[in-house]
């Protein structure tokens, strides 16, 4: 794996009044990596991710995303990332094709590019019969695959996934991860938060957030060895046990 750094943070913090949501986190993510961002509910994952996406301005610390500063160049960051939030974020009253066309269009892709790519995508997802249906009428698992596909449709450097597979069955989750691997093979860095420990095992490296700070960061295998645990589940319990914050 090449070691080009695409995400770099240095003592990055976010305060809401007296509450320290994210407390001086420092880490690096390399190009093409699948980076798992773990933590209990309320540990500060979403806040941290929103800062990295340019949606939220940090209180202190430094971060560079795809080479751009999170304070000064938020709009440049936005050109180079894809984002899929835990809330399903496609337009339910548009069809698959219309959604993709819209998101492709606003990233500056030409109509011809969009057409060619969306045809290929529909074929890959096996949704030829669903292109004219409104997205709102599709099953959740399909919507998530479409949301992910549209998040990487413009070939961003990094894609941020905030609990992308909530509420779907294991088979669909497995298929979803196939899409993630495929994206990583194409060189897209994947930054993903999840609560599923089996998914954590699929990541190249993991960070564990507890009470707004990063408690551990390593590959799944090394973490298990370090905590003398048989599975990531145990590692997670071991670390989350020390948390002071109540889950929200």
């Amino acid at each position: 794996m090449n070691r080009e750094i695409v995400i770099q943070t240095e003592r990055l913090s976010k305060h809401f009044g007296d509450f320290v949501a994210v407390n001086e986190i420092s880490f690096e993510v390399y190009a093409g990596e699948i980076f798992g961002f773990l933590g209990a509910n309320g540990a500060g994952k979403t806040t941290a991710m929103r800062m990295l996406c340019g949606l939220s301005i940090p209180t202190s610390g430094q971060a560079r995303i795809a080479g751009y500063d999170v304070y000064k160049n938020t709009e440049d960051i936005k050109k180079n990332i894809g984002y899929m939030s835990q809330k399903f974020s496609l337009y339910e009253d548009l069809t698959l094709e219309e959604n993709i066309r819209f998101f492709g269009g606003i990233y500056g892709m030409s109509s011809r590019q969009i057409k060619a790519k969306s045809d290929a995508l529909v074929e890959k997802l096996g949704m030829e019969n669903e292109t004219k249906k409104l997205v709102g009428a599709l099953p959740l698992g399909w919507k998530q695959k479409i949301a992910f596909s549209s998040a990487i449709f413009h070939d961003p450097k990094i894609v941020f996934l905030d609990e992308p597979t909530g509420g779907v069955d294991p088979i669909t989750r497995r298929q979803f991860w196939d899409l993630i691997y495929e994206a990583a093979d194409r060189g897209i860095t994947v930054f993903v938060t999840t609560h599923y420990m089996d998914e954590a095992e699929y990541c190249n490296r993991l960070s564990m957030m507890v009470d707004g700070a990063i408690k551990a960061l390593d590959s799944p295998a090394n973490l298990k060895e370090q905590y003398r645990a048989a599975s990531m589940d145990e590692v997670f319990y071991e670390m989350a046990r020390g948390a002071q914050r109540k889950a929200d």
Partner: peptide, 14 residues
């Protein structure tokens, strides 16, 4: 409410 505005906000749309 639907969360789509967040999706818009992370795009380069001005």
């Amino acid at each position: 409410e639907g969360g789509t505005i967040e999706q818009i906000n992370v795009t380069p749309i001005r």
